[in-house]
């Protein structure tokens, strides 16, 4: 299997607060990996380190065989290869739906407007938002915003999609529409790394589940292993707490 992202001995501290400690894990091409764990365990920080929104304190991140923490490595070119979906959507408020999906393509990938619009429409159709191209973010519901945010990331045609709790800020009735889109993307063979509290999604859609607690990876394995036969006490406790609610 081809490793796309490989994280080695990654640590991250804010001041003297160590948030990630000696993280080792990798994502293979075409794989869907879910990261679960209670809030504050460092899941977002790990994702943000991977696309360099946070600078790791130590360790390495290897993308397709290259060390992206090397000073000479082109951070921005690397970021275009990772699509990021945020918990708070972060759609560009000054652009409409189509504008959100083309501005990066045009300014960063230097695509022509026509080409960018064609690509954007393709992915807006995938997420079912092609009828809303002229809407401004504030005119959309949370679920719609998040689907546009997914289309915006896909429009850059990244190798890997990173999702940071994409449904946590949504009203319950909108969670389904976003998970459905993500499930379709997973089935289409897209490589995805998903931080989620949706245990159903982690169990059914992912190829591998990573459980984090207090800044370390406690356990990882297939959904079957993690949900049915966890080997670690901390995993069992977390699942008991989470699944009961």
């Amino acid at each position: 299997m081809e490793k796309i992202i490989e994280v080695q001995h990654l640590s991250k501290s804010f001041g003297n607060h160590e948030v990630l400690r000696d993280i080792d894990f990798s994502v293979n091409k075409g794989e869907v990996v879910s990261i679960i764990g209670s809030s504050g365990s460092g899941k977002s920080t790990l994702l943000r380190c991977i696309n360099l929104l946070e600078k790791p304190s130590s360790g390495q991140i290897i993308y397709k065989g290259e060390n992206i923490l090397d000073d000479k490595h082109d951070t921005r070119a690397y970021r275009t290869k990772l699509g990021m979906v945020f918990q708070q959507f972060n759609l560009f408020n000054n652009h409409d739906v189509l504008g959100n999906c083309i501005v990066g393509q045009m300014k960063v990938l230097k695509r022509s407007k026509e080409e960018a619009e064609k690509v954007a429409m393709k992915y807006l159709k995938v997420v079912g938002m092609d009828k809303y191209i002229n809407a401004k973010p504030k005119q959309l519901s949370g679920g719609q915003k998040q689907r546009v945010a997914i289309a915006r990331a896909l429009s850059m045609e990244p190798d890997v999609m990173l999702f940071d709790e994409p449904t946590s800020a949504l009203d319950p009735e909108m969670v389904g529409e976003v998970l459905k889109v993500m499930k379709e993307l997973a089935e289409s063979g897209l490589t995805m790394l998903v931080v989620t509290h949706e245990m159903g999604f982690a169990r059914e859609v992912s190829d591998r589940v990573v459980f984090m607690d207090k800044g370390v990876i406690v356990e990882e394995g297939t959904p079957e292993q993690i949900f049915n036969n966890p080997t670690q006490e901390r995993t069992r406790e977390f699942l008991k707490r989470t699944l009961k609610i």
Binding site: R76, R79, M84, F86, N90, F92, N94, G104
Partner: peptide, 24 residues
């Protein structure tokens, strides 16, 4: 979050300012 979303798709600080932040 507006800055981060722009950085995350590979924009430079300058592109972020011109295309996202300053208009707002």
């Amino acid at each position: 979050g507006q800055f981060e979303a722009a950085y995350a798709i590979g924009m430079t600080h300058f592109q972020t300012m011109i295309n996202v932040v300053l208009p707002q």
